[in-house]
């Protein structure tokens, strides 16, 4: 197994700040894995994303210690422009994520491919495909500035995945979306995983993380405090002390355990509760 993203003892301090936002972080993500970064606001999740994408230290100055290795190459050895092809980054604020030079969504999505020098005929095919995938075909002629938050979030995601990067870093892509829209985004991410992409996602919606992600990184005050497969991390009693949301079913299961109900295992998806309560026969005739 090859590591796609490898961080070794990474610490980072913003230029005028005394305190490190990232403290001695080490982890490694294999190619094709879907890893979710969770943690409360201010714990350093977004800065970590910026580091993987190379905006730290290429764009945000400040002090970066340790090594960030993307696909066997140190991030300091990449040019900023080269990383664009390798790591796609959809960031948090959907209202600012437009190129500002395109009149319609079709051209907006095509912009990255133009910059990569892809032949025009191929651009058209790829944009068509992505518009369909992200379900925004109906927006193709709209001005990107006139979209709602949820629509912008989809356009931002489409604009990045059309570039077909090997690694996708996605920071809270569903904050403006309704539950169905959120589910659709997770389905798209799943599809990207099936295509062999390595995915790093920041999200607060634990039920969906439990359903879709492979591994978890738990951030707390700039430190990486826990890491491992999703199920193991949620099952670890240590998780509770970081005051982070559990998947709803896990929260219920933990309370049941406290009330003395024995569970065969700790469920993280809704449909596992019956199993965990050893009541498969009840659920079976549903």
């Amino acid at each position: 197994m090859t590591a796609m993203i490898d961080l070794k003892n990474v610490s980072y301090r913003y230029p005028v700040s005394d305190d490190s936002v990232l403290k001695n972080i080490s982890f490694s993500i294999e190619k094709g894995k879907f890893t979710a970064i969770i943690g409360n606001n201010g714990s350093g999740k977004t800065t970590l994303c910026n580091t993987i994408r190379g905006f730290v230290p290429h764009f945000y100055k400040g002090e970066l210690d340790g090594e960030v290795i993307i696909d066997q190459t140190k991030i300091t050895d990449y040019q900023l422009g080269q990383l664009g092809e390798k790591v796609g980054y959809v960031f948090q604020n959907p209202f600012i994520q437009v190129s500002g030079v395109k009149d319609n969504v079709f051209e907006e999505v095509a912009y990255g491919l133009e910059n990569l020098g892809i032949p025009v005929e191929e651009i058209k095919v790829r944009v068509e495909e992505v518009l369909k995938l992200v379900k925004i075909e109906y927006l193709r002629d709209k001005n990107p500035f006139e979209l709602s938050g949820g629509q912008r979030q989809r356009v931002a995601l489409a604009s990045i995945i059309v570039m077909d990067p090997e690694i996708l870093v996605i920071d809270e892509p569903t904050s403006q979306l309704d539950p169905i829209g959120t589910q659709q985004i997770f389905e798209i991410i799943r599809l990207m995983k099936e295509r062999g992409k390595t995915i790093v996602l920041v999200e607060h919606k634990m039920d969906l993380i439990a359903e879709y992600a492979d591994d978890l990184l738990v951030m707390h005050k700039g430190e990486l405090v826990m890491q491992g497969p999703v199920r193991e991390v949620f099952a670890d009693p240590e998780f509770e002390k970081y005051q982070i949301q559990y998947p709803h079913v896990t929260e219920i299961a933990l309370q049941l355990q406290q009330s003395g109900i024995p569970l065969t295992f700790l469920p993280i998806r809704d449909e596992e509760l019956a199993d965990a309560l050893n009541r498969t026969e009840v659920a079976a005739h549903d």
Partner: peptide
């Protein structure tokens, strides 16, 4: 930058 603005290649245009 996320849209590869500074990619070291010759750009194309729709």
């Amino acid at each position: 930058e996320s849209r590869a603005f500074s990619a070291p290649v010759k750009k194309t245009s729709l």
